[in-house]
């Protein structure tokens, strides 16, 4: 594969998306705090958005379908970040910690 043509190859973008997904997956199980898990979740979503963009650019009949989906993913990610921030604050108020090992009882 010619190094000069990488920017115009579908596979290159798909591989980057797969790597982002795998890295995010690793971080999701490695981190011990809710903040770290949120960061890894954002990486997984970014990998998905890159896949949508690549397929939309190279394979779709409709030129803007992939871009529209990537925009919606950004909206979902923003909503998710806001909700997770508020949940973290609520959890911290009750437990004085956001480490996942401390959050183990279901009492309200």
């Amino acid at each position: 594969m010619n190094f000069l043509l990488w920017g115009g190859q579908l596979q290159v973008y798909l591989i980057i998306g797969a790597l982002l997904f795998a890295i995010g997956f690793f971080g999701f199980f490695r981190h011990r705090t809710l903040v770290g898990m949120l960061i890894s979740g954002e990486l997984i979503m970014a990998g998905a958005a890159l896949n949508f963009m690549a397929f939309g650019r190279f394979r779709a009949a409709d030129v803007v379908a992939g871009q529209t989906f990537a925009l919606f993913i950004m909206g979902i990610a923003a909503a998710e970040a806001a909700i997770v921030l508020s949940i973290m604050i609520a959890v911290y108020r009750n437990y004085r910690s956001i480490e996942t090992k401390d959050l183990k009882d279901l009492e309200g």
């Binding site: 011990r32 705090t33 809710l34 903040v35 949120l38 960061i39 954002e42 970014a46 950004m74 990610a77 923003a78 970040a81 806001a82 997770v84 921030l85 973290m88 604050i89 959890v91 911290y92 910690s97 956001i98 480490e99």
Partner: peptide, 20 residues
């Protein structure tokens, strides 16, 4: 959105909750 809003939100979450 991502760099300007979400990263800043995560920073705020960290400052408000003081994670280890």
């Amino acid at each position: 959105i991502y760099v300007g809003a979400i990263c800043i939100t995560i920073m705020f979450a960290m400052m408000l909750t003081d994670p280890q």
